[in-house]
């Protein structure tokens, strides 16, 4: 009896230590975010006094000011449009290409695959300048739709590789049966393949959506003019002009962080699936 008890206690201690490590790591991930949250309702002077203290009063004026000066109402609309269009373009292109590549439908498929692998590793600096001048020549600067094509092209290689993996998982029999029934390529793709890989489509959408939402180097170069600012750019410009008021800056940071965290929690399964699908070979 006593033997059993000590065994149990030992296991408990054995479990507690790893758990402690996990908790510490969680604290490291969360602490800066929590600091932002508690300081977002404080006045600047209170932050200077002690950034670690809990707020004594909760002042939501910071949020109102941050929202106003960061021009977030327009920024969020622009961000949603930009990310949404980018997602649609990427889904369209990558699902078609992924289908062809997974089924080895064309003879040059290894070449195409390698092209996308290489494209993934090209630094933005390599094509930023010429692309900018092409855009300027075509009067596309500040054009959200054109911008979404650029972001789509940047995210396309990973999306193609992911979609290819998802198509590879579809049983061959499904397509063969449809072919025997005399279905056209369009019917096979639209009615049979796409519904089966739709979880993959969502995964790609989420990954591409987050990437384009968070982007700032290309958007700040191509989207000139405040009316075209995304939420990210609004936040960036806020920092330049209003960083005298850390309370306001922290509130703006919460405005940036909260929607993404909420969105992420609600779609986390697809996101994690995608990360894993793209990186773990079965």
């Amino acid at each position: 009896m006593s033997h059993n008890v000590s065994d149990h206690a030992k296991r408990k201690i054995g479990n507690a230590f790893p758990h402690l490590i996990l908790i510490i790591l969680a604290a490291i991930a969360l602490a800066p975010l929590l600091l932002v949250l508690i300081n977002s309702v404080k006045e600047h002077a209170d932050i200077v006094r002690n950034p670690l203290a809990l707020p004594t009063t909760i002042d939501l004026a910071n949020y109102a000011d941050a929202w106003h000066y960061g021009k977030f109402s327009r920024g969020f609309i622009n961000s949603i449009m930009l990310s949404g269009m980018t997602i649609l373009i990427v889904l369209f292109c990558s699902s078609l290409a992924g289908y062809v590549l997974a089924g080895k439908k064309v003879r040059i498929w290894p070449l195409v695959l390698i092209y996308f692998l290489v494209a993934m590793t090209i630094p933005i600096q390599l094509f930023l300048f010429p692309l900018y001048f092409i855009f300027a020549r075509l009067h596309l600067l500040g054009n959200l739709i054109a911008m979404s094509f650029v972001l789509a092209a940047i995210n396309l290689p990973l999306a193609v590789l992911l979609m290819r993996t998802f198509f590879l998982q579809v049983p061959k029999e499904l397509e063969e049966a449809a072919q025997i029934d005399g279905a056209t390529t369009r019917q096979i793709l639209w009615n049979i393949m796409l519904p089966v890989v739709s979880p993959g489509l969502i995964t790609v959408a989420v990954i591409v959506g987050l990437a384009s939402w968070n982007e700032f180097l290309l958007t700040s170069t191509f989207l000139q003019g405040e009316k075209n600012f995304t939420a990210t750019l609004g936040f960036l410009s806020l920092n330049g002009t209003y960083n005298v008021d850390q309370g306001l800056m922290m509130a703006a940071a919460v405005i940036m962080i909260a929607p993404i965290i909420i969105f992420f929690i609600s779609i986390q399964r697809y996101f994690i699936d995608g990360l894993v699908g793209g990186s773990v070979k079965g």
């Binding site: 969680a26 800066p32 990210t232 936040f235 962080i257 965290i261 992420f264 994690i272």
Partner: peptide
């Protein structure tokens, strides 16, 4: 835990 660990990863670099 996975979710919490991923929080910083999904946020914008600028933030």
């Amino acid at each position: 835990y996975q979710l919490i660990y991923l929080f910083p990863y999904v946020l914008a670099p600028i933030t």
